[in-house]
């Protein structure tokens, strides 16, 4: 800091505290609501202090769910979400790192065309091609399956670009040394390039896990069987019923549980998260 101005410093902290309060407040309210006893929400205002039923609410949601909403118990949806996020993460990273390797370290016919095809995925978010994509997945018989949930999401231009960018910074001499040392393309990839990419893979994994976890529209379309519901789409079903039958204590317990895994990852892997976010968008 250039100069010392106590008043400005106090103002700075004040701005930050207000900012943090605004950001945290909705979640605080949700958490408080999730600890209330049933019946709290028939009248009056949402309380701002914890209620007595936290353990009860969370246990109910995890084991039984809200039967009226047609959603399965939360534990099942959490497992589904985890599966989906993990498969999307592993899938995206695997196919991206391989295609980046092909594009950077080889010359083959139609290489530029391949690069552009990968690039095009940036321009076609699932939201704008809902119906035909649904038709493809349906025709392939992938509705209500983990494969249908994940496969259409694992093409990734951003991850491919990130790895390409990183590979271009790996010194040529390293490849040459490996070739002199008798490593072919596969051995070089496994022995040298993959270990060098560790940090990038980790950073990207954080971003991709979150991406997979927060998916909403796609699971909504391809799952009609409640066994495949993910927690993010399941919550919407519960919330839709909460207006008629105000069980906000249970809905908010589900909301907290649905937020917790990715939020904890961001908080505890902040360094990797920031690296992944800032570098994929560069």
């Amino acid at each position: 800091m250039v100069e010392n101005r106590p008043l400005l410093n106090i103002a700075t902290h004040l701005v930050l505290i207000i900012g943090v309060a605004i950001v945290v407040f909705p979640v605080y309210v949700a958490f408080i609501a999730s600890t209330q006893a049933p019946g709290t929400f028939f009248r009056g205002v949402t309380p701002l202090l914890p209620g007595p039923a936290m353990i009860e609410n969370y246990t109910t949601m995890l084991t039984d769910g809200m039967s009226t909403s047609g959603a399965p118990p939360l534990w099942l949806m959490l497992v589904n979400s985890t599966w989906m996020a993990v498969i999307v993460t592993v899938g995206k990273i695997s196919i991206s790192i391989l295609s980046a390797y092909a594009i950077v370290y080889f010359r083959f016919p139609l290489r530029a065309l391949c690069f552009w095809i990968v690039f095009v995925t940036l321009m076609l978010p699932v939201e704008v091609r809902i119906i035909p994509t649904f038709a493809v997945v349906s025709n392939l018989g992938l509705l209500n399956s983990y494969l249908g949930l994940t496969l259409p999401l694992i093409a990734s231009a951003t991850a491919t670009f990130l790895f390409r960018q990183f590979f271009l910074t790996v010194p040529d001499e390293l490849t040459e040394a490996a070739r002199v040392d008798g490593a072919g393309p596969v051995k070089f990839f496994i022995d040298i390039l993959l270990p060098l990419s560790r940090t990038n893979i980790a950073a990207l994994s954080v971003i991709m896990f979150i991406y997979g976890w927060v998916q909403y529209l796609w699971p909504l379309l391809v799952t009609t069987d409640s066994r495949y519901y993910t927690v993010v789409m399941g919550i919407k079903r519960m919330a839709a019923y909460a207006d008629q039958q105000p069980q906000w204590n249970l809905v908010m317990a589900a909301v907290i549980l649905a937020m917790l895994p990715p939020v904890l990852i961001v908080i505890f892997m902040q360094r990797l998260f920031v690296k992944g976010l800032v570098e994929t968008e560069k």
Binding site: S94, I95, S96, L98, S99, Y101, A102, I103, V104, Y105, F106, R107, F108, R111, C114, I117, V118, V120, T121, L124, R129, T133, V136, V137, L151, P152, I154, A155, T160, F167, L168, D172, T175, E176, R179, G184, P185, V186, F188
Partner: peptide, 27 residues
């Protein structure tokens, strides 16, 4: 690309194929 590249022909196509297939089918 790199100064040093590998000369294989089929391998890069196999490497990029999964990404291409998914992009073509689902995008």
């Amino acid at each position: 690309t790199k100064r040093t590249i590998f000369s294989n022909r089929a391998l890069p196509i196999a490497l990029i194929a999964p990404q291409l297939v998914i992009t073509l089918i689902f995008f």
